[in-house]
Amino acid sequence: MKTQQPTKAEHRRMEVIKDLGCLLCKLDMGDMRHYTPCDVHHVTDGFRRLGHAFTFGACPFVHHRAKVYGSVDGWGVEEKYGMTQRDMVRLQDRLVAESEDNTVGAKVRAAMSEG
């Protein structure tokens, strides 16, 4: 079955994820400000995607290795990070929300300082 096209909100979320970079590299570095270019990894249940809302940033090394093994969890990510893929989605959601808040906040502050 073909995956549905993302909604505008899901598309925006995936663009922000790409701007934020690889979530697993951030965890490895212990710094949520760390940036490694990333793909958007879709969480799966078996080999079926759960949808565009169930995504997090994974660099090409992580993302393509996951494809070889069938899922990120297929090669020990849960054991390494103590998080399930759904936990990673929740963390990614928080980072996306913070990024959006900072972006909107910056625009509001800039507009206020101009006028």
Rank of each mutant, 00 (worst) to 15 (best):
P60F: 08
R94G: 10
Q5T: 12
P60M: 12
V104K: 13
A106Y: 01
Q92R: 01
V43N: 06
V43H: 05
H34D: 14
H52C: 05
K26Y: 04
R48M: 13
T103H: 05
G46N: 07
Y35V: 13
Q4Y: 10
I17T: 04
E98Q: 01
H42M: 11
T84R: 02
R90T: 03
F56Q: 01
L20C: 07
K18A: 13
C59H: 07
R94W: 05
L50Y: 02
T7H: 05
Y69K: 15
A111M: 06
E114V: 04
E78C: 12
P37R: 06
K67Y: 12
R65P: 00
R86P: 00
Y35N: 11
D39W: 05
D93V: 01
M112E: 11
Q4M: 13
H11T: 14
A9M: 05
Q4R: 13
A106G: 09
T44Y: 03
M112I: 07
R94D: 08
L20E: 08
R33F: 08
A9N: 08
M32C: 09
R48F: 15
E79G: 04
H41T: 01
L50S: 04
M1D: 14
M32D: 12
M32P: 06
E10P: 00
R33L: 15
G46C: 08
K67C: 09
Y35L: 15
I17P: 02
V96S: 00
C59E: 11
T7I: 06
M83R: 06
T44K: 12
L23M: 14
G51M: 07
H11L: 15
C59K: 05
P60H: 13
T55V: 09
V43G: 06
G115P: 02
H41W: 09
S71F: 03
C22I: 02
D45L: 12
A110I: 04
R33V: 09
E10R: 02
G76E: 03
P6N: 07
H42V: 05
E79S: 09
D39N: 13
A66N: 00
M29N: 10
H52T: 07
C22S: 07
F54T: 07
T7P: 01
K107Y: 08
N102L: 15
D73G: 07
Y81D: 04
G46E: 03
I17A: 10
L23E: 06
